[in-house]
């Protein structure tokens, strides 16, 4: 298309689709509503073999679940709303840290200093503050609980309360964006097309519900100074799941299951 007509609503030039936009959006809302009513933001622990129920007629997946079950005992599902990586990752890392006070304190200090880094990078102070304060409040609340089981219960409650849970997601998105921007020379090689790292952050990292790719995971790990092992399960050839450590060669503190378009948490 030339200059003319480059900026047009999707319903142009067809009288019969007058309300098409509204229909599409209404259907999207309906799907989102069904998902949010049937799948909690973060679920309870399930056995890995419970995944078989989703693929009862699919031999490729059933084989791979068998392989997965030889390495992991449990899975914790997250809601597929485009935020699943960020939600799963935040939850899993905090759950892990609850078992290790020293690491938790190091993490807490890192988080405490993170606001200044964001503001220095040009994020607006009061928008960052909102999310930072809630993020720190959650960390504080968790660190104040001495009993491990109680702390894990609290974590689970917090992550299923939309208000708190989404704030945690936003803040991790901002930290990830900051990390990408801080090391933009490195990350620019991973961005397809001619978008800059900053454009990429504005369009694919900071907005809610945008799905995560390798590049998000690498930057999020680097921002939180940790590593992730991702187990890939799809209909590709072979009977085993493929695993990737990010960053390469790390000793991962969080294990995630990836199925096309979605992340859940895994437990050895």
């Amino acid at each position: 298309m030339g200059d003319e007509g480059e900026n047009v609503p999707a319903n142009e030039s067809n009288d019969s689709v007058v309300n098409q936009d509204e229909l599409i959006l209404a259907q999207q809302r309906q799907i989102e509503k069904e998902i949010s009513e049937s799948i909690p933001l973060v679920g309870e622990l399930d056995s890995v073999t419970s995944l078989c129920k989703e693929y009862s007629t699919d031999d490729v997946y059933l084989e791979k679940i068998k392989d997965l079950a030889s390495k992991y005992s449990h899975v914790r599902r997250t809601r597929p709303d485009g935020n699943c990586f960020f939600r799963a990752f935040s939850y899993a890392i905090l759950e892990k840290l609850l078992c290790d006070k020293d690491s938790f304190n190091t993490f807490y200090k890192l988080a405490e200093n993170s606001k200044n880094i964001l503001v220095e990078l040009g994020f607006q102070q009061f928008t960052v503050e909102d999310f930072y304060e809630t993020y720190m409040e959650v960390l504080k609340r968790l660190s104040d609980i001495d009993n491990l089981d109680d702390a894990k219960k609290e974590l689970h409650i917090i992550f299923n309360e939309q208000g708190y849970s989404d704030y945690m997601v936003v803040y991790l998105r901002l930290l990830t964006s900051a990390q990408l921007q801080k090391e933009k020379d490195f990350y620019s090689c991973f961005i397809e097309g001619h978008r800059t790292v900053v454009d990429f952050c504005h369009q694919e990292v900071e907005p809610m519900y945008k799905e995560s790719d390798h590049i998000h995971i690498m930057a999020a790990c680097s921002a939180l100074n940790t590593g992730v092992r991702v187990l890939y399960m799809d209909r590709g050839v072979g009977s085993s799941v493929t695993q990737h450590d990010l960053p390469e060669g790390c000793s991962p503190s969080v294990h995630l299951l990836y199925r096309p378009g979605h992340y859940d948490i895994l437990y050895p």
Binding site: M1, N7, V8, P9, A10, N11, E12, S13, V18, D21
Partner: peptide
């Protein structure tokens, strides 16, 4: 004005968020 102004203004919802926009430029 946008090239499709007349058509859009006649048919759109009052709320611009109910339009599915294409962003090209």
């Amino acid at each position: 004005r946008p090239p499709d102004n007349a058509f859009y203004v006649k048919t759109c919802n009052k709320n611009p968020k109910k339009t599915k926009w294409w962003y090209h430029d």
